[in-house]
Design a protein around this nucleic acid. Sequence first.
DNA 1: TTTCGTGTAACTTTTTAAGTAACAAGAATA
DNA 2: TATTCTTGTTACTTAAAAAGTTACACGAAA
Lengths: 148, 148
Amino acid sequence: MRVSTRFSDSIHILAFIDIYDQKKLSSEIIASSIETSPVVVRRLMGVLRENNLIATKKGTAEPRLSKSPKDITLLDVYLAVEGDKQLFTLDTSTNPDCIVGGNIQKVLGAYYEDAKMAALRKFNNISLQDVIETILVEQKAKEHRINN
Amino acid sequence: MRVSTRFSDSIHILAFIDIYDQKKLSSEIIASSIETSPVVVRRLMGVLRENNLIATKKGTAEPRLSKSPKDITLLDVYLAVEGDKQLFTLDTSTNPDCIVGGNIQKVLGAYYEDAKMAALRKFNNISLQDVIETILVEQKAKEHRINN
DNA sequence: TTTCGTGTAACTTTTTAAGTAACAAGAATA
DNA sequence: TATTCTTGTTACTTAAAAAGTTACACGAAA
């Protein structure tokens, strides 16, 4: 299938809202930064709103973060838009009458869960604030290279 | 998209080959354990062969592991069939003229790589032997429950 | 009251992998 | 040696999930 960019795009939206705080923040403007359609942005923002990461007002282009960027981790965003699904996919239809087919799901499932948790723990240690600050540092470095 | 079960199915194939070592091991028999088609099995076995994990002989139903199960890690299998692709997907088309769009790929890319490595390190610490032994233990436990 | 924008539904397109059909050619065997 | 089984491979179809598109009711603000 097409691979989901919801996680990346959601972090983008949140960083954008924080960085361009005082400006008009229509879904169209945000979409032009992500290079996608306004509807995709509004759909993602709907999910972020349901998960208490942003607050929006219908008809008004003024989305705001519900919490400080320090208090939003990448894991919060990931769980909001991707949910707690498998990261590595088990084949869930294997022959239960075979020694391998009848036991491999449980065995692999445990290893997959372990690997997934190792990755998600990393995301739980990165805040939106970290992302925003790093973006701003990269931007200054970029501008420095251009001027020298 | 449809989610790939190549990783799970490949481990299944390797465990099956090792456990049913002396028996006839046609792609049809293996496929019936995975509950898929023989062609899917042969395709995966082709990839496993290219990556030196198994040896096969055209026309003969006798695939064999190329190495001891102790010396095959889940990471070896993962890289063989999924490659070293992104685990978390960056949106690679963002507006380069925006502070966020112009820097987020690099910033998120680094965090994603970090999380991916945390997961893959786990897989590098699990051998096919671990998987096989755990399957056999689960099977004995299952039989014990049935007989008591 | 006009204009802009959100929220949402319905539908289409895109992408990727699995499933299916077909077949040449190697291996084993009666 | 003829038959049967099987692999390796190609080409095509189906399935599933997400992004893209169109449309529109309704809220907000000038």
